[in-house]
């Protein structure tokens, strides 16, 4: 299982592994989690995953999204919408062309790519926020988000 993690260079591998473990537990508890997320993908988020880290703060090449695709990830992870600025020829999200399950973690309430959440998004995308405040804000302002939940639970 290969996971490609796209960040702004602020997350460590250990942090990413910890976040994925929490999210895996969260997803497993969701109703219809198998149909929503794909059971085979759920089963594979674990210790044996190979994590490839890509830092968009360093790499500004226009074909960066092609590099992500060439890694053939089983799961794509992003932090704080890193990589959402990448576009297709129809100005859509380049991530839409990556055919694997995607976990987009949002920990900051200041997102430089926030407006990109107005674009059509693939049903492969799953957004997890740090807390309910961010979740509620995004739900209200960006109804096109296909799935969103917060890691923080009451």
């Amino acid at each position: 299982m290969k996971i490609v993690a796209v960040t702004y260079g602020t997350e460590t591998r250990e942090e990413i592994e910890k976040d994925l473990e929490r999210i895996s537990g969260l997803i497993s508890g969701l109703e219809d989690s198998g149909r929503l997320f794909g059971k085979d993908t759920l089963d594979c988020i674990g210790d044996n995953s190979d994590i490839v880290m890509l830092d968009t703060s360093k790499d500004k090449r226009p074909y960066f999204s092609r590099d992500i695709r060439n890694e053939h990830p089983d799961i794509l992870v992003s932090y704080d919408l890193a990589g959402f600025e990448l576009t297709t020829l129809t100005d859509g999200l380049a991530y839409n062309l990556i055919d694997c399950r995607q976990i987009h973690l949002i920990k900051s309430d200041k997102l430089s790519n926030e407006k990109r959440l107005n674009e059509v998004m693939s049903i492969n995308m799953f957004f997890f926020t740090k807390d309910r405040v961010i979740e509620d804000y995004l739900k209200e302002n960006y109804p096109k988000i296909p799935f969103i939940d917060s890691i923080e639970k009451e």
Binding site: D32, L36, G38, T41, N96, I98, S122, I123
Partner: peptide, 23 residues
């Protein structure tokens, strides 16, 4: 209402079959 999905294989995709039916 829009659903977006990029197929790796337009003829076989178990995840899509299940998820699209759910939607």
């Amino acid at each position: 209402h829009t659903i977006y999905y990029h197929f790796a294989d337009r003829y076989k995709d178990d995840y899509f079959d299940d998820r699209f039916s759910y939607e």
